[in-house]
Design a protein around this nucleic acid. Structure first.
Lengths: 110, 110
DNA sequence: TGGCTATTTGGCTATATTGCCAAGTAGTTT
DNA sequence: AAACTACTTGGCAATATAGCCAAATAGCCA
């Protein structure tokens, strides 16, 4: 692979990888509705605070969320709302896959 | 996290994880232009055939590509073209990140 | 049949990710 | 200042991923 093409794909992969985790997808979806602090997200996810904090730092590092300290809490915000379209696309893939499964089942019954 | 919500996010994460690799992003983009066989992709990527074959099986397993044997080769096709919008969104994030970097640099010079 | 070509699979090592606990930091409240 | 709240960091073990080589499979060609 050409060097500059590789650089581009690596940069993209880093962003996508940051999304590629169930808890982080929850965070993304939640932050789309409203900003949240670590504590709130921790409760929703049901993992250790440190774990959630690390997930948030992965997202922040990828530039997907921003944080803002206000009062006692650090509030996290979603930076690019287009990410939600992204998830719509993923849903499309899942639906297509389910459709395939169904057809396979049908074929087996025959 | 509630069990059914967790299931949904795990399914989504699996799809996204399948995209989260430079070589696999190249494959996706390439297949968007035209179908390709393993050999062709292997050359473009410049890795071992077995490595590329495994990348393709990850993509196939996620339902992102389909394969079709014709003549001597197995041709791979992209199944959901919406994935390209997805990548547009990733580009948007990258641009925003670059913008941030630029502003930080500016601030430092002052 | 035997050798090709195209592709997949198994096995292995190196590396990365995840998640918990414990400890550290920082700002707030009493 | 001491205790408290909110969060991050370091460390560690378990697990997953990546990429190579070697070997297996499968269809084509002579």
């Amino acid at each position: 692979m050409k060097k500059d093409r590789k650089t581009i794909y690596e940069a993209r992969a880093k962003i996508i990888k940051a999304m590629a985790h169930p808890s982080r997808l929850l965070i993304i979806e939640e932050l789309h509705h409203q900003e949240r602090c670590v504590n709130e997200l921790t409760e929703m996810i049901g993992a250790d605070t440190s774990t959630v904090s690390k997930h948030l730092s992965v997202l922040k590092n990828a530039g997907l969320v921003s944080d803002e300290k206000r009062g006692n809490c650090i509030y996290y915000n979603l930076r690019c709302t287009c990410i939600l379209d992204f998830i719509d696309c993923v849903e499309e893939v899942l639906t297509a896959n389910a459709e395939d499964q169904k057809n396979i089942m049908k074929a087996c019954k025959r």
